[in-house]
């Protein structure tokens, strides 16, 4: 099924090897990530060596080679956010979620990742929680911050030993 969709979108790109990145974007839209079977189909369809396709897919940070966790919280660690204490924010999130930055979570439900400037510098520091932008987080005010986290639906893993 998925293979047919991949074949279709490859045809739409005229089967040109230079369309590899565009094709991978669209495959990721279909599956949410790039499973091995899809990479194989793409390589066949574009008549590219397998390692070339994997090399490209793993080079670009926006391509995911693993199924994404159910929920994701991304902290901007761009310079403007950094100056407004995004580093502290990241630490607090690690604590609260009981997760390590950019490492797959044990339960697979939440993942914490860092991103670099999303252009909301004027509202720094910012988070993206499941696609929704959260701005001007009150890093200096523990209570207010916790309340914001609660409102975003971030679970609290405090007390849990890992």
């Amino acid at each position: 099924m998925a293979d047919r969709r991949i074949a279709l979108l490859i045809r739409r790109h005229g089967g040109r090897a230079e369309a590899l990145i565009e094709v991978l974007h669209q495959v990721q839209e279909i599956h949410g990530y790039l499973p091995t079977s899809a990479l194989l189909a793409v390589a066949r369809g574009l008549q590219l060596p397998l390692s070339r396709v994997y090399g490209v897919a793993s080079f670009y940070h926006l391509f995911r080679l693993q199924a994404p966790s159910e929920h994701r919280c991304a902290v901007c660690l761009g310079t403007a956010c950094f100056v407004r204490h995004a580093g502290v924010l990241a630490k607090q999130l690690e604590q609260r979620l009981g997760l390590v930055m950019d490492a797959a979570g044990a339960d697979g439900i939440w993942a914490l990742e860092q991103i670099s400037c999303i252009g909301a510098c004027g509202q720094a520091p910012v988070l993206v929680v499941d696609g929704a932008l959260e701005t001007k987080l009150p890093v200096d005010d523990q209570e207010a911050l916790a309340a914001r986290f609660d409102a975003m639906g971030l679970p609290s893993a405090r007390g849990q030993v890992r």
Partner: peptide, 17 residues
């Protein structure tokens, strides 16, 4: 058969997928 995968200090040689 070979290509580079990942980037930066994570770079490594891979074969196939």
């Amino acid at each position: 058969v070979w290509d580079l995968a990942e980037r930066g200090s994570d770079c490594r040689i891979i074969s196939g997928l």
